[in-house]
């Protein structure tokens, strides 16, 4: 009996797998250490990933009068409130510091990716606990769950980006070819969000504390990331510090590519490196913790 086409098959695990019955079976034994096979399994279960993300997207604004308009409304109102306060009260002179970009559009361009990041981190942190029922009853690579939770925030981002284009028209900011970099930068945002979210989702299974830690941390994080303020207000010699934040260089780069200002590739590179590092660590913890999810959740 061949199992080569079956998607439920798992490669032998551990250093010396016991002799499989016919050389192609699933070997179930205590798991130790790291395995690279997790990512392969994720790929094999990409359809489940898709359906879970689709479920979140479909369910998100069910039975709301405004529907997907909420995706637009939230960042838009936030932009108005923040630009009223920071644009006027604190009076950051945007005209000088960001090459003539009006503050509302500067803010909105950074707010959207930040909200995408923060929603993804929150959703993936809670994802395993929210889907506990599935974890206890069916086998599938557990990694699918936190990863799929990026779907709905991504959809929100796409919808509210339409408003971004409208704002650009309003302020006569013409998109440039640089906009083509956007998918790449959004991907880096996903990597950063997953790096944080995957590890935290595993921790939340054992310690529900993180459900409360995360929203608070994200609020602080929001203010230390150049979302509402331009990096130019910080002294040049501390810039490297800002970029150790995986979202620091990324938000700047996304804003630059949308508004057509020069992209700081050094900053972007550093932030990307940190994001990838976080992801590797998150995956490592997830791998380690995964074997007891079904027993603990």
């Amino acid at each position: 009996m061949s199992t080569s086409s079956s998607i439920g098959r798992v490669l032998p695990v551990g250093s010396s797998p016991p002799k499989a019955v016919s050389g192609s079976g699933i070997v179930l034994r205590p798991r130790l250490g790291l395995r690279a096979s997790e990512l392969t399994k994720l790929w094999r279960y990409r359809e489940l990933l898709f359906f879970l993300a689709l479920r979140d997207v479909k369910v998100r604004y069910k039975q709301t009068a405004l529907g997907a308009l909420w995706a637009v409304l939230q960042p838009f109102v936030m932009m108005i409130v923040l630009s009223t306060f920071f644009g006027r009260v604190i009076d950051i002179n945007m005209e000088d510091k960001t090459s003539g970009i009006p503050y509302p559009i500067f803010l909105y361009a950074g707010l959207l990716p930040w909200m995408f990041f923060s929603a993804t981190v929150t959703a993936s942190t809670n994802s395993l606990v929210a889907n506990a029922n599935m974890l206890r009853k069916v086998y599938f690579p557990r990694l699918v769950v936190p990863v799929a939770s990026a779907g709905a925030p991504l959809m929100d981002y796409a919808v509210s980006f339409a408003v971004m284009l409208g704002l650009m028209g309003w302020y006569h900011v013409v998109p440039t070819v640089q906009l083509l970099w956007l998918p790449l930068f959004v991907f880096v945002t996903i990597v950063a969000a997953m790096g944080v979210g995957i590890g935290l989702s595993g921790l939340t299974v054992s310690f529900r504390d993180f459900r409360y830690v995360v929203p608070f941390t994200l609020q602080v994080w929001f203010f230390v990331t150049p979302v509402i303020w331009p990096v130019t207000i910080v002294a040049e010699k501390y810039h490297w510090l800002l970029r150790l934040n995986p979202m620091g260089g990324t938000i700047e780069a996304i804003r630059a590519c949308v508004l057509g200002t020069p992209i700081d590739w050094g900053a972007m590179g550093l932030s990307t490196g940190i994001a990838v590092l976080t992801l590797v660590m998150g995956l490592a913890y997830f791998n380690y913790a995964e074997r007891r999810f079904a027993d603990v959740v």
Binding site: M1, T3, S6, G8, V10, P18, K19, A20, V21, S22, S24, G25, I26, V27, L28, R29, P30, R31, L135, R136, K137, V138, Y139, R291, R292, A294, D295
Partner: peptide, 14 residues
């Protein structure tokens, strides 16, 4: 495959 064994092993073909 919902949970891992603590010791020993099982081989499942299919």
């Amino acid at each position: 495959q919902i949970t891992d064994p603590t010791e020993g092993h099982a081989v499942v073909d299919g």
